[in-house]
Each structure stands twice: as structure tokens, then as C-alpha cells.
Amino acid sequence: CSLQSECKVPFIHVGNQVVSELGPIIQFTKAKGHSLSDVLDDVQRAEMKAYMELMNNMLLTAELYIQWCDETTAAEITRPRYSSPYPWPLKHILAYQKQWEVRRKMSAVGWAEKTLEQVYEDVAQCCQALSQRLGTQMYFFNRQPTELDALVFGHLFTILTTQLTSNELSDKVKTYSNLLTFVHRIEQTYFEDQGGGLSS
């Protein structure tokens, strides 16, 4: 964290440059000549970007909501997890501060008055859209994985492998068998040797 100007993960460290978060890292690797979306045409690239924003707009917000605004999850999982690296008085202050911040963000995007059920509905709607888009293809755009596949895999794999107070979130994802196969396929193809995860 001392390396970074803004303390955000993930980051890559190249020479004296530090690039953090997905968007800038994709930009950076693209500038170095590695891009996954070069094979796409203009319309497909527009669609890919749109689906990536769908993930940020709906799934990420829903994850934040469930972690911080559902009091059971916040008390049993999120606050202890968030505060674990800090010493005693600080850990409570920081955890509640973070919770307050997330709740303000929720009210700014109009999610504050949503109930937990409505948020699960939104997750289902988002998964439904992803599942429709994926169809029976290997990856979202034909046979080549793109940035979108990486982002979707990251979110869904985390949802599927994280034990929360209730299984409702992962059950929502599990309804869509093609999304499950998609996550399994990426795990087996690219993270085979790591072990753990879904297959174990």
C-alpha cells in the first residue's frame, strides 16, 4: 500500500509505474500490445463494454448492498472480516465508517430504500441477462475470452465460493446452468493447478 498513490487492489508494478484496478490495467496492457478485444468488431466491442458496465452497475452494487446493508451479513461476516487487520479501538471505528460510507453510496444511487428481496431480484435479472447473452457459446464473444469473460468469472466465482449467512445469492447464480459451466470451464482451463474452488 505504501507503493501506491491510491490504495487500491489489484495493482501491477512495472518499473517505477504502478497501475491499479481493472480498467487501467486493461488500458496499460493494451498499450503494451496485449489486448483481448482486438478481434471484436465495433458493435461487439460496444456490447462488451456495455455488459462490463452492467456488472459494475448491478452485480457490484448488489454485492456491496448484501455485504454492508444487510445487517446479519454485516455483523457476522463483513465487519469482522474488514476490521481483522486493525487493532482494537480502530477496528470498530473503521468498520462502521466503511459501512456508513457504503450506505450513503447506496442512497446516492437510489438503492437505499430497496429491500433485500428486491436486491436478489436485481441479481437474478443481471444473471438472466448474462445467461441470455452467453447462450451456448464457449465465451461471451465466440471462442475467444475477452475482458468481459474475466470480469464475469471474477464476480461469479467469488459469489459461488464464498460462504455467506444464507445461500440465496449463490442459489440465484446456480439457477443458470450455462453460467455455471462457463465458470467451471474457465477455472479448469486457466486455474487448473491452483486447487480448491468449485470442483473440490
Binding site: A50, Y51, E53, L54, N56, N57, Q128, A129, Q132, R133
Partner: peptide
């Protein structure tokens, strides 16, 4: 169609985020 509905949802997110 279902796929177009999904695309609409995605592009609306794009507008709201960007």
C-alpha cells in the same frame, strides 16, 4: 427477444455508469 432485452439492460447500465 430475450437477448435484446439483455442488451438493453447492459446499455442502460453503460449510460448510467459512464
Amino acid at each position: 427477444s430475450a437477448k435484446e432485452g439483455a442488451d438493453a439492460l447492459a446499455f442502460i447500465s453503460l449510460l448510467e455508469e459512464k
